[in-house]
């Protein structure tokens, strides 16, 4: 079980984010839950890529570095893309929240449902 412990801790982080999305009423809290779940997914991919005693996937001109000693570079590339997309979607969620605040005057989604009628 010890070899899986980082994955389990990462899963706990993901579950905290999902719990916030499901149970909270404030829109900003829901956005925070989405951000935390997204961080947990990024962390999980990087944890999968780690090789014990490995090096960063960068060559050097002055030093001989074996390609076999490097960590897995493919998840790094995928996560790099995912982080920037996460920022864009977060900004979109914030814009929606600000718009809803301008319309209803509250961040509370239950009160929004009452005010709609």
């Amino acid at each position: 079980m010890d070899a899986y412990l980082p994955y389990v801790l990462c899963l706990v982080l993901f579950c905290i984010g999902i719990y916030a999305v499901i149970s909270k009423r404030n829109i900003i809290k829901i956005i925070i839950g989405v951000i935390i779940a997204e961080y947990a997914v990024n962390l999980f991919l990087i944890l999968v890529a780690y090789k014990a005693g490995g090096r960063s996937p960068i060559f050097s001109r002055t030093q001989e570095i074996l390609p076999e000693a490097m960590v897995d570079p493919l998840p790094h590339a995928l996560v790099l893309t995912s982080i920037v997309i996460g920022l864009a979607t977060t900004a979109f969620l914030i814009a929606l929240a600000v718009r809803l605040y301008g319309k209803y005057g509250t961040f509370d989604i239950s009160r929004m449902r009452e005010l709609r009628g």
Partner: peptide
Amino acid sequence: NLFGAPLMTVSQFYP
């Protein structure tokens, strides 16, 4: 895979 031992079958090509 276990933590610290990635499956490098595809991505070994890149380095």
